[in-house]
Write a protein that binds this DNA or RNA. Structure first.
Lengths: 369, 369
DNA sequence: TTTCGCGTTGTGAGCACTAACGTTACTCGT
DNA sequence: ACGAGTAACGTTAGTGCTCACAACGCGAAA
């Protein structure tokens, strides 16, 4: 019989109803310590009769554990983050954990506020794709107060946390190499390449070196650019800086604009590489607006395998990230830490793979040449 | 100077450091009651020095408010729910609230578990798109324990809650009417039409009546079917039950299969209406596999305006839901309730609109006929 | 019988914080 | 001059629960 009243029953009322002490009732309901079968039955019956619902706040206050993990992502609306979050939520649910989600909107300040809020809510751990890998003081603060952190996608390396990433450089190199093998020499690349508008793109490309611990390399889009440059160098070609397009604001409209510009320039590229889902959407808008055919007029490889890539044109060749697995891995690592695992930081590098479809044609100039 | 130690400082330590009582420190830091400027400064200085971070659990335990709202959706990975969630999160953040998200996977049992967990965590309110509109006992329990509930998309009408929905019947009727006006007489419809596999589809269509308070009408996909049927009847045509396809499992692969079947049947439809994003994706897969051209071979209207609909073929005409607004509205209504608003339930019906693109052609048979 | 140990239960403290109330000092109006 | 009002602060109790500890009974081992 459920309780009708507005205030729900406490464990003390259950105990009184069952004729035992609150501690005993707690032992039965909380499933710890000792209790005899007879008492268990009495307590459970009383709890059911009163519609007792444990108050996890009180429990958390005393145990120091809330069974809640906090997640900070750029934007849950993005398919990438949504899928990662789904993975996290699945693992969390399996262990009786709740998940508090916050969007940083790629703003360092919002991210800090979010982390602060989550810590005040006493989350047991944090999963973060940090906007500010160069200034992770807020994450360090979390770790210092015994709140383990797992980073994914973007990682601040001078932070002692578990991490889950994919090998952006290698998979991008593989993808761009496919285009080069098809004879393409002028391959445009569309990437966010945040933060730091002042960053010297030409300098970065010139001295591109995967072993260099440059801060910008911690951002996936810069890593993907690195893979792009490496693919060129491996083929003995020098990349043309004109073909590397930085999208000033992280939105498909901006990507579309940049793609339009790229595709209508003098000596336009014969192929395109897009560094993430938003870039892909923008590129497709531009290609559609220009009434170009894929792959007859322009070849294409997209980072992130979105739903529509299997049926647009003759299928879009894409790099597929194991998004769900990123989420489950991050959550599993975090739960291990919460469970007390104090071993050295684990760094998981998951495999992305190329989904070959019909968006790569042999370069016409190659054919005629 | 931030604290290095693992346990963070409490308000008592701050008070001691500042030379005041815990209550006074609480008043300063919690911004309630009275306190002199001098004391405020001392306390704030002490708090900063100790790296004090308020414990919201303790605060919540005593005030009965956690500044947290719980959200239950089918699947955060779906663009619809992701966008609604984004709206909720935006409003929540603006008011200093956290958001705990859970997926029900369209399972009534999981939904009940999720609600139970959220109530145990003492959320101040719940936003739910319920799977089990016919058996909302768990939601009634929430309301009874003073936890306001706002429903969106799907609503259990015999529950006294605020609701946020769109007018599925009207907008679908408008969309299908466009197809009929273009001369199409055989329009296939792809819809989930859960729950109740035993539900008599033919009977539902035969007696389709928008004023009938049938349980199934509370589900958007059934409502959309109703709009479809009404569009036919308004045009003086009787819908062909063969063209109404129920997708047995809610996945794009199943939708694809059903669409393939539909498009290759004898007397195949000349146009298609898809009742949500997953159906649209499945339909496009089928159309692509059959190498049909849109709209030359088949016209199309899709419910839910997904990213790719602006650049696929000549653009896909779509029904666009104000997803973000659904989320913000639901969150605003909930925050009002949490704030103490006890007026009668509000039922918001938001406007969806038709985004006309290039996926509707005049029916060829109409032209020749 | 004594001693030990174990299962079982109750008692009391305390987690970090806020609300209610009491006390003090001070101001103001008449 | 005196009561009322108010600002500022402290004391205390209480939020719902868990944990350490003590106490007790009972059977087995010494």
């Amino acid at each position: 019989m459920a309780q009708r009243s507005s205030k729900s029953a406490t464990i003390i009322e259950v105990a009184r109803q069952a004729g035992v002490s609150p501690a005993t009732a707690g032992r039965v309901l909380g499933d710890y310590g000792y209790s005899s079968p007879e008492v268990q039955e009495k307590v459970r019956a009383a709890a059911a009769a009163l519609g007792y619902r444990p108050n996890r706040l009180a429990k958390g206050l005393i145990t120091g554990k809330t069974q809640t993990i906090g997640v900070v992502v750029g934007d849950i609306e993005s398919p990438f983050y949504a899928s990662v979050l789904r993975g996290i939520a699945d693992v969390a649910r399996g262990s009786g954990f709740g998940v508090i989600v916050t969007n940083s909107d790629e703003s360092a300040e919002r991210e800090r506020e979010a982390v602060q809020l989550l810590l005040e809510k006493q989350v047991d751990g944090l999963i973060v794709s940090s906007t500010c890998v160069g200034d992770p003081g807020h994450l360090q603060a979390a770790i210092s107060s015994n709140c383990p952190v797992v980073q994914f996608d973007r990682v601040a390396t001078d932070l002692e946390t578990d991490t889950v990433v994919i090998d952006n450089v290698a998979i991008t190199r593989a993808g761009v190499t496919k285009l080069i093998e098809a004879g393409h020499r002028r391959i445009g690349i569309l990437a966010e390449l945040a933060p730091g508008k002042d960053k010297d793109l030409a300098g970065f490309v010139a001295q591109a070196d995967p072993s260099d611990p440059d801060l910008y390399k911690h951002y996936p889009s810069w890593q993907r650019l690195l893979g792009y440059v490496e693919a060129y160098r491996q083929a003995g070609i020098e990349p043309d800086i004109e073909l590397i397009r930085r999208v000033p604001t992280y939105a498909s409209a901006a990507a579309r604009k940049e793609a339009l510009d790229l595709l209508t320039m003098r000596d336009a590229p014969t192929a395109l590489f897009t560094a993430d889902g938003l870039m892909s959407t923008g590129a497709l808008q531009a290609i559609s607006a220009l009434k170009l055919a894929i792959p007859a007029d322009v070849s294409l490889i997209c980072f992130d395998d979105l739903d529509w890539m299997q049926f647009v044109a003759h299928g879009i060749t894409a790099i597929s990230q194991p998004t769900h697995l990123i989420g489950t891995s991050a959550a599993e690592l975090l739960l291990q830490r919460i469970g007390g695992n104090a071993s050295a930081s684990q760094h998981r590098v998951l495999a992305a793979h190329l989904v070959e479809r019909g968006s790569i044609a042999v370069c016409p100039e190659e054919v005629s040449g």
